[in-house]
């Protein structure tokens, strides 16, 4: 319906306007301005410092571990690995959920939106630092398409405007600041995410880069890259 924050502000200001306003329902994507590089950098640098020990308590209290596992490695292929994820990226993700910027229309985001709405900046910083402190382990063994994928990841294919993933995500898929680590990522989640970028279901990146830089990839190549990253550790 409407932006949650906006609605609560309106209610706060004018009690008697209530009959005109309905609570935000989780059926429509709120209108949130896309990130600019500068706004994102400013938001992340304004976050409080995280504490690993407190973050472990938050992970339990907010039941992150129920889906993502005790150290951020999930028990099933349904949920992303956040083990060893950069602190900045996890913070960005939680902020995106909280503000409704990340709101995939296929409803997978509902749980994360509600959890994020109930977390403070401090809790987000803490839990993000806890996951950043974990060591990334591989999800699966390398597959037959490892070398093919590695070539695409490291050099891209300029004939199709496919950029080298490693250029931003790191030579070992270790990530860099707000650019997420991809090493050890669950391949099903990776493929789903790429589809979401291509279908504009996910638009929480800066300047729509993920869609632009990877548009030329075939579904087979995306699968190969997913399997490649799933077999990395760092």
């Amino acid at each position: 319906m409407k932006n949650n924050l906006l609605v609560s502000t309106i209610i706060g200001l004018n009690v008697f306007a209530m009959s005109q306003v309905t609570h935000a329902s989780s059926t429509e994507k709120p209108q949130v301005p896309a990130w600019t590089g500068a706004a994102l950098a400013e938001t992340i640098s304004a976050m409080p410092k995280g504490d690993i020990q407190r973050g472990q308590v938050v992970a339990k209290d907010m039941m992150c571990i129920a889906c993502h596992g005790e150290q951020g490695k999930p028990y099933t292929m349904n949920f992303p690995s956040i083990q060893g994820q950069t602190q900045e990226y996890t913070m960005k993700t939680m902020i995106d959920y909280r503000e409704g910027r990340r709101w995939e229309s296929y409803k997978r985001a509902d749980v994360m939106v509600k959890i994020a709405e109930n977390m403070t900046d401090q809790q987000i910083a803490d839990v993000s630092s806890f996951y950043a402190a974990q060591t990334t382990t591989a999800w699966q063994k390398p597959t037959a398409t490892y070398e093919q994928a590695k070539a695409l990841v490291t050099t891209g294919d300029m004939s199709r405007m496919v950029m080298a993933c490693a250029g931003c995500h790191g030579a070992e898929g270790q990530g860099n600041g707000v650019t997420p680590a991809l090493a050890g990522q669950i391949p099903q989640y990776f493929v789903r995410t790429m589809q979401a970028f291509h279908e504009k279901d996910r638009v929480n990146d800066v300047n729509g880069m993920m869609d632009q830089f990877t548009k030329g990839l075939t579904p087979e190549e995306i699968q190969a890259i997913a399997d490649y990253y799933a077999s990395l550790m760092c």
Binding site: K60, M62, M63, C64, D110, K114, I115
Partner: peptide, 12 residues
Amino acid sequence: TELTAQPILESV
């Protein structure tokens, strides 16, 4: 329980 997220998740 005392877990903050439990009733939130149930509402989702």
